[in-house]
């Protein structure tokens, strides 16, 4: 399972907040909001085009505006929301492959990839699979 990082809001139980946003454990699919992480077909199934929940191989590889600014002492560019934390999950190299049950990592750049469904499933199923990983994410800001 590849090791990935993502900044997300931290719930009181120290696990990521489940939320369809760029700051939560989830994906955005609401076209009306103008920002989507996944594309859906006419039947509401997730299109397998590499789009999904954005992740990186190291938290310092995140763009400056996604690294909490409270981490400036160890990452001088940090300019992100301090309500978020750098979460990680997995242990293997950052390469295409199985990430969790019915989920895969698909790289689109050396330092970026997306968590995508292993097969085309309804959006609700994809979201459930992502939420199913919640207890496996831990904070790592070292």
């Amino acid at each position: 399972m590849p090791k990935v990082y993502r900044t997300m809001k931290c719930a009181t139980d120290r696990f990521p907040v489940v939320e369809s946003s760029n700051q939560g454990l989830g994906v955005r699919s609401d076209l009306q909001a103008g920002i989507v992480d996944v594309d859906l077909d006419a039947d509401g199934f997730v299109v397998l085009n590499g789009h999904g929940m954005s992740v990186v191989p190291e938290w310092r590889k995140l763009p400056a505006f996604l690294i909490p600014s409270r981490l400036r002492d160890r990452c001088h560019k940090a300019r992100g929301d301090n309500q978020t934390a750098c979460f990680t999950m997995g242990a293997g190299p950052f390469q295409d492959g199985v990430f969790a049950d019915q989920l895969e990592l698909r790289k689109d750049k050396p330092h970026h990839g997306c968590i995508v469904p292993s097969a085309s499933v309804p959006l609700s199923q994809f979201e459930s699979n992502i939420i199913g990983t919640r207890s496996q994410w831990v904070i790592d800001e070292e």
Binding site: N22, I35, S54, F65, S69, R79, G80, D81, N82, Q83
Partner: peptide, 19 residues
């Protein structure tokens, strides 16, 4: 005001095209 909803709105828009 960099820890406000307005700042997060800007961050969200930047992330859309950052990659």
């Amino acid at each position: 005001q960099d820890q406000t909803d307005e700042a997060n709105r800007i961050r969200g828009q930047m992330e859309q095209v950052w990659w």
